[in-house]
Design a binder for these strands. Structure first.
Length: 227
DNA sequence: TGCCAGGCCCTCTTTAGGGCCTT
């Protein structure tokens, strides 16, 4: 019997990556590029990429780290304009990012500047990967891409390239969970909570989750407490 | 190359400290 997807909307997420002038928006750092992909039904169906002018020069370190130069940013539209367009792209979809706390801070900071709210939730591919791939050499995006042989064009630290690789890492993790635990789909909330589950409890957590999904694809009562 | 910060995790912890990850 073919099971229906558990959560329609939960299967649709936007995977996001920022390139920025530094690490902390509270210290004045700004976004300089945003890249994102839309995942629907396990496939990338749309993309968003835009350089943005932060209103000041970026450091040589950032130029070398990202390959984005001051010359490239000189004629880019301002952050406010790009973020307005991005708000329309993401709607209220839930978001995924690698080390999501970083991208969430910049998203909130840039949205605050244009009085734009975001009501969706974030999940972190790095926290999930730390649970699922505990044997990986480390959990940097670039390392995980190589570790799982995820398709890439050799470009790292550019927003759309990193978002694409994060998306494929995300889909790889979801796919491996469905295969290993014989479940029809993995809801966003499961991946979100997986990242906050103690490493030693991950296997029990996923086993319990798979047992809580009945034949109709819905959770039975008193189960893993997802939702 | 790596500092700046913040959030999370782990442990030789919880009355704390250090590592990881993001740019």
């Amino acid at each position: 019997m073919m099971r229906q997807p558990i959560y329609g909307k939960a299967d649709t997420v936007v995977v996001l990556d920022f390139e920025t002038t530094g690490l902390s928006p509270t210290e004045g750092d700004r976004a300089i590029e945003i890249g994102a992909v839309l995942i629907e039904n396990g496939e990338v169906t749309d993309r968003f990429q835009q350089l943005m002018n932060p209103g000041r020069r970026i450091s040589r370190f950032i130029e070398q780290y990202t390959g984005i130069t001051n010359h490239m940013l000189r004629d880019a539209p301002p952050c406010e304009q790009v973020m307005q367009n991005f708000a329309e792209f993401i709607g209220d979809y839930d978001m995924v990012a690698h080390n999501a706390s970083f991208d969430r801070r910049f998203l909130n900071a840039e949205f605050d500047r244009i009085d734009c709210g975001y009501s969706g939730q974030f999940a972190c591919s790095m926290l999930a990967a730390r649970r699922i791939y505990q044997e990986a050499p480390n959990h940097k995006l670039q390392s995980l891409v190589r570790y799982k042989n995820i398709q890439n064009n050799g470009v790292f630290h550019r927003a759309l390239a990193d978002a694409e690789m994060t998306a494929h890492l995300w889909l790889t993790m979801v796919h491996e969970i469905t295969e290993q635990y014989d479940i029809a789909s993995v809801p966003f909330s499961l991946m979100q909570k997986l990242g906050k589950t103690a490493k030693s409890s991950v296997q029990n957590y996923l086993t319990r989750f798979s047992q809580d999904v009945d034949q109709s694809g819905k959770f039975s009562s008193g189960g893993s407490g997802l939702g």
